[in-house]
Design a protein around this nucleic acid. Structure first.
Lengths: 239, 239
DNA sequence: ACAGCTAAAATTGTATACGATCTGCGGAGA
DNA sequence: TCTCCGCAGATCGTATACAATTTTAGCTGT
């Protein structure tokens, strides 16, 4: 409770809410599936929740629409994206093209420290799989994506990293819509196998396993409907 | 001259200037190199030129920053992006990963009609190479990018297409900054070779040629400086 | 009861207003 | 002469105001 800044209206947790803050919070909520596909994201509501004007709320929603997480219809408003089956197919097709390349690039730069970091992620994944409760389940799904993003980080290419950011986030939406089983634990084992292959320098095998892994995720999809969820409740939960 | 809409203030060429219009015009100007890297893009100036408020101008600049064509520095303004050598390397590394995959995907869907369309593009390229003048040179550079984008279109994947959009546009910036020779005509011959290989079903050879082609473009880069250019003049030229 | 129309409410689109930050210039002092 | 300070102008960040569009509710007539 350090009152070092007398001018600040609140104690310290006010890290200046900006468009970026809102964007990140909304993205988290969408990727975490606290906001279901199709949910209406009214500018006024978002602004009110974050205590900013519609200007910033609108800016954040625009940004999310560029990432494909939100769809903005002119004069109608913004909605959490609801990818069609065709879009889903395209997203996974893109991952099949990008991820082997990222893996190859990353493998060339990975040392013992990076292997350790990946294994640490896998440990966390494992822990969450064993844990119970909805919160753990959400964290598990996010951890699964984080593995792919960590790999993208290690490729040392900001462009590829950003593309993967988008693909992983949209994949989460697709899984929310069409996934029939929760993330299967064999996905985790495939992650393990990939790391092991990288460690032993078996790049081709690591690549093959990565493709198998992506196929596996996509094979778990099925068609079904989903309804909207409540905006405010989902966001307040993240505080 | 159909005056069917008495309420409209202007005859018809007013296609309602929106954020999208401005974004496209600016992107064209940047990719066409009518706006040099580093050029300041003041919100007020952009708004004045397009006769809209700063709101829309700002929105367009934001959008361009998501594409990597513009860099926005807080409280300082927007500038035409000036990719570093490292960024340039990353952009081409990304293309080396994406384009072979796109090529493979496209090859599976390409029929006689698509081959004809590609050959038509090549004809246009050829014509521009032979033509003289700065305008022809700009058109030639754009045509070169259009070939890659046409291929991406034929892959039938909107996600990949958008990634390529960004990569081609940013490549244009990189070439503007670091390219030493103008687009060499051998680039055109490589395009020809790719189409021929696709037509004869030699996908592996087409892929190899594509990689060679990208290497070729990147090998033509060198380090040198560039100055800013005038915003208004560059934009008005496009009307 | 239901289809269609109209008016009011809600929501988005765009412009403007105002405060905050940065930039550039000129003068005071060493 | 050089450096540092401070003030004025310019530019950006955010909020608010107003216009345009969509949605909704209610009414009327069949």
């Amino acid at each position: 409770m350090t009152m070092t800044h007398p001018t600040a209206t609140l104690v310290e947790d006010t890290t200046e809410v900006t468009s970026q803050t809102i964007r990140d919070a909304l993205r988290d909520a969408i990727v975490d599936r606290r906001l279901a596909p199709g949910t209406k994201l009214s500018e006024a509501d978002v602004g009110t929740i974050f205590k900013v004007s519609r200007t910033l709320a609108r800016s954040a929603l625009q940004a999310l629409s560029y990432e494909g997480l939100v769809v903005v219809e002119r004069n109608r408003g913004a909605f959490v994206a609801s990818p069609s089956l065709e879009e889903a197919r395209q997203i996974f097709a893109s991952r099949r093209i990008l991820e082997p390349g990222i893996l190859a690039e990353a493998a060339r730069r990975i040392g013992p420290a990076e292997i350790a970091a990946l294994r640490h992620l896998l440990k966390e994944e494992e822990r969450l799989i064993e844990a119970r409760g909805q919160h753990a389940r959400r964290a598990e799904i996010k951890a699964s994506g984080d593995f792919h993003l960590a790999l993208a980080d290690m490729a040392g290419n900001a462009v590829l990293r950003r593309f993967m950011d988008e693909l992983v986030a949209r994949s989460s939406l697709v899984i929310a819509l069409y996934g029939q089983s929760a993330i299967s634990s064999c996905g985790h084992q495939e992650h393990e196998a990939i790391v092991t292959h990288i460690e032993t320098g078996a790049i081709d095998e690591a690549t093959a396993m990565m493709l198998h892994h992506i196929d596996h995720i996509e094979a778990d999809l099925d068609l079904r409907a989903k309804t909207g969820s409540d905006l405010k409740e989902a966001l307040l939960q993240s505080l």
